[in-house]
Design a protein around this nucleic acid. Structure first.
Lengths: 213, 213
DNA sequence: ACCTGAACACCGTTCAAGT
DNA sequence: ACCTGAACACCGTTCAAGT
């Protein structure tokens, strides 16, 4: 055999990013430190700097993995435009549902930096062009869809972190009937309901604003 | 005169939060440290802990200020429902435009914790109920609007941080006509165009999905 | 080529001590 | 009551040294 560097670990940028993502999934963004990542990889923290140039670069590598998990399918023949759009938006959303703590990575980190990020965005753009939108409108719709998915994940993560929130409303306020209705009707709705509702609004907006079939 | 504690500083929770927000606006979320905040206030870092119980509590106080800046107006008589909704959504968006680095605060931080946050959300809910939506649909629409504004601000902040991004697309890719169109048409569009486009889609979605006038 | 240990300049936070 | 200094347990990162 050629090569033969031992079977155990052998670091590389992508393997390091995978381990970082595991730490983020397990304990949140703040729980990822170069020292902890090193020890998870069975190595001193400083060794990691041979494969990534900084923690920021490491987080870019994690983003590449995330974007790589998004699959934007070409519409199959006979598939309606809105079915193709729904499927693509759900694919993006699903990545953030599986890795909820990664939404913070999108803060201060541009989207189209990597090959994988570009592919995802361009794929979404093509679907909207094929649906019949002109270039600027397709950009606007893509931006709106991405914003909605990221924002939804942000709200979802916030609600997760603070289950307390809505239960802290003062009794005085709750004597107002409208407030009571707001709180009690809201309590029964799930994050998934909100996501599907928002997606429906987005598709309905596209259909009516651009007169799509 | 009574009281008379000297005219200069005299700390309190809200004044501290104001100074923290100034630091965030000037240098981003990461640039806020208890030590720097102390020195901005002319005091040792440890003194701050007499007014807030932790950095997390301080950030909650900053959030209260932000929510306090949102004004959701009752619809004036004769005003169309969509005009009232547009105005409310723009008010939320404007706060994030003025304080772009604060979008990271919404990560892992629930929304309705404070009096101010509750007031903003409940105000939005009421507008949607008055527009004619039933309770669950009003929640869904509110959630979608909040998600869109937060997500848009997230994308905006990311683009700001990485002006590089779209210019890094390889020449090879750019030989594809569809890619070239995607890049060149996107370059001309502003964040404000995207925001207004998204808001239009949201309102159009509400109108058509719920058959509003 | 790859890994390490010590060191530097930072963090948030606790606590005993000062006035 | 309010503020402080020293200390603790962390950070990311540089650099000279090891194999």
């Amino acid at each position: 055999m050629e090569g033969g560097t031992g079977e155990r670990s052998q670091l590389d940028r992508d393997r390091i990013a995978a381990a970082a993502l595991e730490l983020i999934d397990a304990g949140g963004l703040a729980s990822l430190s170069m020292r902890k990542l090193g020890s998870a990889l069975g190595v001193e923290a400083m060794s990691i700097y041979h494969y990534v140039s900084s923690k920021d670069d490491l987080l870019d590598a994690v983003m590449e993995r995330l974007y790589g998990e998004i699959t934007i399918e070409e519409p199959v023949s006979g598939q309606s435009w809105d079915d193709a759009v729904r499927t693509a938006v759900r694919s993006f959303h699903e990545v953030l549902r599986v890795h909820p703590h990664t939404v913070g990575l999108f803060v201060d980190r541009p989207a189209t930096l990597s090959q994988e990020g570009f592919a995802a965005f361009f794929g979404g753009y093509r679907l909207l062009r094929l649906a019949g939108l002109a270039a600027p409108e397709a950009h606007g719709a893509l931006h709106a869809a991405v914003s909605f998915v990221l924002g939804h994940s942000l709200v979802r993560a916030g609600a997760e972190a603070g289950g307390r929130s809505i239960d802290l409303i003062s009794d005085e306020l709750l004597e107002d009937d409208a407030v009571a209705e707001f709180v009690s009707s809201g309590r029964e709705l799930t994050d998934d309901f909100h996501f599907e509702q928002g997606l429906t609004l987005l598709v309905a907006g596209l259909r009516s604003e651009y007169k799509l079939a």
